[in-house]
C-alpha cells in the first residue's frame, strides 16, 4: 500500500502555515525566537490533541460538540487524583474520557440519532457534571506543584506535553492510514452505503471514533489542568470552535472520509501561530475569538468552492435549471 504524505492539499496548507509565520515575523524578529516557538508548541500540544479527536469523528462523518465539557470534567478528575502521581492521574482522566466516548458512540450508533443533536444534550450534561464536581474551582495542593513543572521541562523547543501530542498524532495517522479498522472508518465516512454493502461493520467506526474523541479531549483537559495546577468547571468553553476550525483548516472534510492526521497537525499549528501572532501585537483576547470565527467561515467557503459534493450537486442543479428554463421558453414559443 502506498501512502502519500505530501499530497498537494497538504503541501498547500504547509505553505499557508509558513506564510502566516513569516508575516508575523516581519518587524518582530522575536516571533521566530526560541521561547515563542516553544510557547506556540505548548498551545499546539493542547489544541492539536482535541483537533485530532474531532478529526477522527469528522472522518466518519459525525461531530462531537461535547469536547469542551468533557475536557473540563477530565481536568477536575486529574487535579483530584494528582496524589497518585502524574501518569496515574492522566490515565484515570483519559480512561473516563474513553468510557464516556464509548458510551456516547454506542448510543449514537445503536439508535442512529444525529450526533449533532445528541451531543448537544451531552454537552449540557457534562458541563453540569463538572459544576457538580466542583462549584468554583479545584486547586492543586502546593506540595504537588512540582508536577506541573515536570510537564513544562524544555527539551530544545519541545516539552513532554508537545512530544506526547506529536506521538499520539503519529500513531493516529498510522491507525487511519494502515490499520484495518482505521481504513474501515475512512471508507465508512466517505461512502456509508457502499461501505455497508462491502461488509464494513456499521457500528464499529462510529463507536471507535467517539472513543478516540472522548479520550483525547479528556487527556487534553487533564494535561492543561495539571499544567496550570487548577481546574475550573466553566473552563474550555471555546475549545470546540478552535478544534473544529483546526481540523477544517487541516483539510478534514466535513463530509467524511477525507483528510490526514498530518494535515490536522498543520491546521492546528497554523491556527496557533495565528492566535500567537495576534496576541503578540497586543490585541484583546476577544479579537482572537473573532479571528477564529472568521477563519472558520473562510475555510468553510474555501471547502465549498474546492471539494464539497454539495458544490457538484449545486452546479448540476444550476445546469438543470437552465435546461428547464430553455425547454419552457421553447414550449412557450410554440403557438397553441
Amino acid at each position: 500500500m502506498t501512502y502519500r504524505f505530501l499530497t498537494p492539499a497538504v503541501s498547500a496548507r504547509i505553505g499557508v502555515l509558513v506564510l502566516v509565520f513569516v508575516v508575523f515575523t516581519i518587524g518582530q524578529p522575536n516571533f521566530a525566537g526560541f521561547d515563542n516557538i516553544y510557547a506556540i508548541l505548548e498551545y499546539f500540544a493542547f489544541y492539536g490533541l482535541v483537533a485530532a479527536g474531532i478529526a477522527a469523528v469528522m472522518l466518519v462523518g459525525e461531530l462531537d460538540l461535547s469536547v469542551g465539557s468533557v475536557a473540563a470534567v477530565a481536568g477536575i478528575i486529574a487535579v483530584w487524583t494528582t496524589g497518585l502521581g502524574l501518569i496515574p492521574c492522566l490515565l484515570i482522566a483519559t480512561t473516563m474520557g474513553l468510557v464516556y466516548g464509548l458510551a456516547q458512540g454506542w448510543i449514537i450508533a445503536k439508535t442512529g440519532i444525529n450526533s449533532l443533536v445528541f451531543t448537544i444534550a451531552t454537552l449540557i450534561l457534562m458541563r453540569g457534571v463538572a459544576f457538580i464536581m466542583t462549584p468554583v474551582a479545584e486547586i492543586m495542593p502546593l506540595e504537588r506543584i512540582g508536577m506541573s513543572d515536570l510537564l513544562k521541562v524544555k527539551l530544545w523547543i519541545f516539552s513532554p506535553t508537545s512530544l506526547l501530542t506529536i506521538t499520539i498524532l503519529v500513531l493516529l495517522g498510522l491507525f487511519f492510514g494502515f490499520s484495518r479498522w482505521g481504513r474501515e472508518m475512512m471508507a465508512f465516512g466517505g461512502a456509508r452505503n457502499e461501505a455497508r454493502a462491502a461488509g464494513v461493520n456499521t457500528r464499529r467506526p462510529i463507536i471507535i471514533s467517539f472513543a478516540i474523541c472522548g479520550s483525547l479531549a479528556a487527556l487534553a483537559g487533564a494535561l492543561a489542568s495539571v499544567k496550570s495546577a487548577s481546574a475550573a468547571p466553566f473552563s474550555f468553553e471555546g475549545l470546540l470552535l478552535i478544534a473544529v476550525t483546526a481540523a477544517l483548516v487541516g483539510g478534514i472534510s466535513l463530509f467524511g472520509g477525507k483528510g490526514t492526521m498530518f494535515g490536522v497537525a498543520v491546521g492546528a499549528l497554523t491556527l496557533n501561530v495565528l492566535s500567537a501572532g495576534i496576541a503578540s501585537r497586543g490585541a484583546a483576547i476577544y479579537v482572537q475569538d473573532l479571528s477564529t470565527g472568521l477563519v472558520l467561515l473562510l475555510v468553510l467557503g474555501v471547502e465549498f468552492l474546492t471539494e464539497s459534493p454539495q458544490r457538484r450537486q449545486w452546479s448540476e442543479r444550476m445546469a438543470f435549471r437552465r435546461t428547464l428554463k430553455a425547454t419552457r421558453d421553447t414550449k412557450d414559443a410554440v403557438p397553441a
Binding site: 476550525t245 477544517l248 476577544y286 479579537v287 475569538d289 470565527g293 465549498f304
Partner: peptide
C-alpha cells in the same frame, strides 16, 4: 446563504456566532 449552498449549519453558525460575539465585544 452559507447553509443553502450546502455547508453544515452547526459549524457555520458556530463560526458566525464567534464572529458576531467578537463584533459585540469590539
Amino acid at each position: 446563504a452559507f447553509v443553502a449552498l450546502g455547508l453544515n449549519s452547526i459549524i457555520t453558525t458556530l463560526g458566525a456566532g464567534a464572529a458576531i460575539f467578537g463584533i459585540a465585544n469590539v
